[in-house]
Amino acid sequence: MRCLHWLIAAASMLPLPLLACDGLALVQPWIREAPPGAAVMAGYGKLVNNGSKPVTIASISSPDFGSVEIHQSSMADGRMRMRRADPLTLAPGQSVELTPGGYHLMLMQTKQPLLAGRSHLLLHCADGDLAADFPVRAPASE
C-alpha cells in the first residue's frame, strides 16, 4: 500500500502531455512574418476540440514573447476593431479558425527577431498544456 502511494506521488510529478488540453488540437499553425523590430506579431491555425468535453484555453505563453493573448479582429460600421477574446472555450466537436481578419493569437513584446524562424507556444488548459510549434512565414497568398 505504501508502495502504491509512492508510485502515485511519483507519477503526479511527471509531466502528463497526453492528458493535457484533452481533445484539443491545433492544425497547421503559423506566425505571420513581421517587419523587423515589430513589437507585435500574429499567429494563426485552426483549433479543434476532438474530445467529448468542453476545453477552455485559459492562457498562452511562449519563450519568444512577453505576452500572448487570443484576439479577434472584426469590422463594424466600416471600422476595424480588435478585442481580446480569451479565455476561449471550445465545445466538443467545435473548431475555431484563427485567420487573418478574424481570431488570431496576439503575440506581444517580441523578445527576438523571428524572420523566417520558428516559435513555440504553450496553450494552458485546466488539466495541463498543449505545446505547439509555429513556423514563421509570409501568408501563402502573398
Binding site: R32, A34, P35, A38, A39, V40, M41, A42, H71, S73, M80, M82, P100, G101, H104, M106, L107, A138, P139, E142
Partner: peptide, 17 residues
Amino acid sequence: FTYCPDVCPTTLAMLKG
C-alpha cells in the same frame, strides 16, 4: 498603426501586390 499585427499587415501586403 504598427501595433496592429493582423489587419494592417494584411492590407499593406495586399497594397504591395
